[in-house]
Design a protein around this nucleic acid. Structure first.
Length: 448
RNA sequence: GCGGUUGUAGCUCAGUUGGUUAGAGUAGGCGUUUGUGGUGCGCUUGGUCGUGGGUUCGAGUCCCAUCAUCCGCCCCA
């Protein structure tokens, strides 16, 4: 017999974990709906043609691919194998597991364009898979919780997502801040530096500023051909500390000659002006974010009390559905990294440990007569909306008390010959240790 | 994809320079005299020491490979 184990980077969730997970899931879901987002689901499996090329070369490598069923080698010639695995795999693999929820959503919107009411607001809470190397806060199977709005380019949407972020973390009681920036501001900065064609390398270098420090970033940019005096000026801008409004004002002169940069600043200003509550919203010029499809505002959420990487990500994308044959469909979305939120909250002891789903009462008995009585009493209580279970085995009564204790069931109802004779139920409160005799009506009232 | 760490009972870990039948705590089971749990006491079930090779008279201990884990890098939630 082989030792059982989980596949790499995957986890089981027992009852205790599920209590914690459901707590977070239910709050997120509630707020999604409160903001008018509608739930959809898409299949775990997508055609590889839907997924490939959407996440860059790195992303393509991290896709889990599904071997074709049946005789998957029947169309493969020795020549295909000689051409290398990329060519070869195209012949034997046609499907893959979804890598995120955004691309399947784009496919969905494109396919259902005539039936959807635009602007379309949807939320989706489903697992995604990445053939990544597992690490702290990084798994191969994990849930994403996405809320997106497509078919509207109003900045109200951005502001609403920010508001959604605030209300979710407020109810979760987790202190989190949202960094915001605009791809246009970043483009403007590169423009002002006179290196507009080096946008990507600039963004990548800037994104790791917090980790490696300015000197490393500067050296990297100098190697790329950026000019030192301009970088020095940029350094002052980036290290400037102040309110969001002050930061915007400070950037205005730097971006004075860049039309796109000023447009980006205007976006930031507008979104902030739409945000009634600017608590924990921070305009951060350093924020770049990897995924290439963002075109406008971008944001990233972090826990304040624990360094754990980002727990929320999102931004505006203008061309997501273009490759599915639907151009000009601007959208903006936010993704809550629920696995990391759970990890963070667990570390900070902010999650419930008591199983609120435990039954209210456990029935126990000594003989067949008591057993039947318990079953009938249990059904009466259930029809009154009281959750209860009947201990299934006729062993020592002690076992059923231990069972109730372990499972967090508060009351144990004992039905023996005395109870059957008197028609009363002996009810023990496992917390106080007291016991009382009640009839069915009294029991029902006590527990409802 | 790259670098490092760790892998002994269900769980947390001991195990001395290689040396007899591999230990502890905890969890589980049974009991502690009749129909009552959470703390006590007694007894007890669990391990081909991650897996596969190798060195040796002898390997949990040394070497190689492999799988998994955790931590960095890349990237990301």
């Amino acid at each position: 017999m082989q030792k059982p184990s989980n596949a790499r980077g995957t986890r089981d969730f027992g009852p205790k974990e599920m209590v914690k997970r459901n707590f977070v899931f239910s709050i997120i879901k509630k707020h999604f709906e409160r903001f008018g987002f509608q739930n959809i689901e898409t299949p775990s499996i997508e055609n590889l043609s839907t997924l490939m090329g959407k996440y860059g070369d790195e992303g393509d490598q991290l896709l889990f691919k599904i071997l074709n069923s049946g005789d998957f080698l029947k169309d493969v010639s020795p020549n295909d194998i000689e051409l290398g695995f990329k060519n070869f795999s195209q012949k034997i693999v046609e499907k893959g597991l979804r890598y995120d929820l955004t691309v399947p959503f784009a496919r969905f919107v494109s396919m259902n364009r005539s039936e959807l009411a635009f602007p379309f607001k949807r939320y989706q809470i489903q697992p995604v898979w990445r053939a990544d190397r597992p690490q702290k806060g990084r798994y191969r199977e994990f849930y994403q919780c996405d809320a997106d709005i497509v078919g509207s380019d109003s900045l109200i949407n951005e502001a609403e997502l920010i508001s959604l972020f605030q209300s979710i973390f407020s109810e979760l009681n987790l202190n989190a801040q949202l960094l915001i920036n605009s791809r246009k501001v970043l483009t403007g900065i590169v423009d002002a530096l006179g290196m507009i064609d080096k946008f990507t390398s600039f963004a990548i270098a800037l994104d790791k500023l917090d980790k490696v420090g300015w000197d490393v970033v500067q050296n990297e940019l100098l190697e790329q051909g950026f000019e030192l005096d301009k970088l020095n000026k940029l350094k002052g801008i980036i290290e400037f500390e102040g309110t969001n409004d002050q930061k915007v004002a400070n950037l205005k002169s730097f971006l004075a000659d860049s039309e796109i940069g000023l447009a980006g600043l205007k976006e930031i200003e507008d979104v902030l002006s739409f945000s009634v509550d600017q608590t924990n919203i921070i305009f951060d010029v350093k924020l770049a974010r990897g995924l290439s499809y963002y075109t406008g505002l971008i944001f990233e959420g972090k826990a304040v009390d624990l360094a754990f990487g980002s727990i929320v990500g999102g931004g505006r994308y203008d061309n997501l559905t273009t490759s599915f044959g639907l151009p000009n469909m601007s959208g903006v979305g936010i993704s809550f990294g629920i696995e990391r939120i759970i990890d963070v909250m667990d570390t900070l002891k902010l999650l419930p440990s008591v199983d609120s789903s435990a039954c209210q009462v456990l029935f126990t008995y000594f003989d067949l007569e008591g057993q039947l009585k318990c079953l009938s009493l249990a059904n009466s209580l259930r029809s009154n909306g009281i959750s209860c279970e009947v201990y299934p085995d006729m062993t020592k009564i002690k076992k059923s008390f231990e069972y109730a204790d372990k499972k967090g069931i508060r009351f144990v109802a004992v039905i023996g010959s005395e109870e059957i004779k008197s028609g009363l139920i002996s009810l023990k409160d496992m917390i106080s240790g007291t016991q009382e005799e009640l009839n069915l009506l009294e029991l029902s009232q006590k527990l409802s």
